[in-house]
Write a protein that binds this DNA or RNA. Sequence first.
DNA 1: CACTTGACCTGTCCGC
DNA 2: TGCGGACAGGTCAAGT
Length: 288
Amino acid sequence: MPELPEVETVRRGLSSLIIGKTIKSETHDTEKGFPNTEADVRSFLIDATIIDIRRRAKVLMIDLSTGYSLLIHLKMTGQLVFVGDTRFGAGHPNDSLVNILPDKSTRVTVQFTDGSALYFNDQRKFGWVRLLPTIEIPNIDFMQKVGPEPLAKEFTAKEFMQRFSRRSKTNIKAALLDQSVVAGVGNIYADESLWGAKLHPQRLVSSLSEQEFETLYNELRSVMNIAIEKGGSSNHTYVNAEGKKGSYMNFARVFRREGLACPRCGTTIEKMRVAGRGTHICPYCQQL
DNA sequence: CACTTGACCTGTCCGC
DNA sequence: TGCGGACAGGTCAAGT
């Protein structure tokens, strides 16, 4: 999925839809996707009221009145879709993607006491949900390792540049995708921001000038802010909490636009493989 | 440690 | 229309 802008869009949607609701029941398929015991679920999830929804990097945290939180990672194809009233479909968006829920990809279902429900759907089953004490969250491995939030007010261009020192011998695309450098960047916004900064994805991190880092910092923040305004990117499976798609892909300048003209210079956009991922560039604007 | 590559899954699309 | 292979918003555990 879901990179920072998509997860943030889901967070905002869920905040207005489920805060204050009380959980009546929960079901899930595999232990891999939801490793907690039945006893944990009974003690800390059932009858809990949702008090807040937060995000760190690409991870969502649903804080509960029991002092526990549901942590959720959507990985590539995860969705969190809210359905108003499962008996009548009231509040259920008229979107072909979510006409019938639960469906084949539904892995976790949370029923609320008012008849509404939250579905965690995940076609590829890479995503996960887990329940843990809220105060333990900062101690988990992921939170210890993950880099700063790129959109935080206090996050500066200088700090951005300094974070890359740990990945000086790799290419800039691989470094951007490394969650321990900066949080929340994925394949779409890596390509889009590199195009914005006119940087070839295979440029060695150690070759970038201070000026180039500053431009990349500005482009990354700009692209992510625009993506949040547009409700994220929907290439395929991504939908927000109401089951609706985001519109960033209508705005994208290079991502998934191979064969089309670069909006800046008209050169045909090319697709290549960098850091094991499909990578889109303008071969004129972004030279090695 | 830093870096790269394959594995985890299911579905879809493209070429034969 | 069928079938194989490549590929897909992301991490991880291995390997070098």
